[in-house]
Amino acid sequence: MRVEVRVFATLRRYLPDLGIGEARVMDVPDGTTLDEIREILELPAEEVKVIMVNHLQAAPQDPGADGDRITYIPAVAGG
């Protein structure tokens, strides 16, 4: 399956060649979980606070699906 992955804020340092908001397109075996995709990208688990898939909250153990837009988010908030 093919997924596109985005990272923001402090997580961007792990994928430094991506411009702000740009996606890494990845081909991974069907059913690969969000946590496994995170590992492939070498994003530290403790720095990933929220995962979104297609604009919805998701859990690390959820499997990805073809065409998914996946976003890994560190600690953020503001006002």
């Binding site: 923001f8 804020a9 702000i20 979104m52 604009h55 976003t71 988010i73």
Partner: peptide, 12 residues
């Protein structure tokens, strides 16, 4: 800054 939220709220 607080604008760390722009991309995130957009994703949501």
């Amino acid at each position: 800054g607080t604008n760390v939220l722009m991309n995130i709220v957009n994703e949501a």
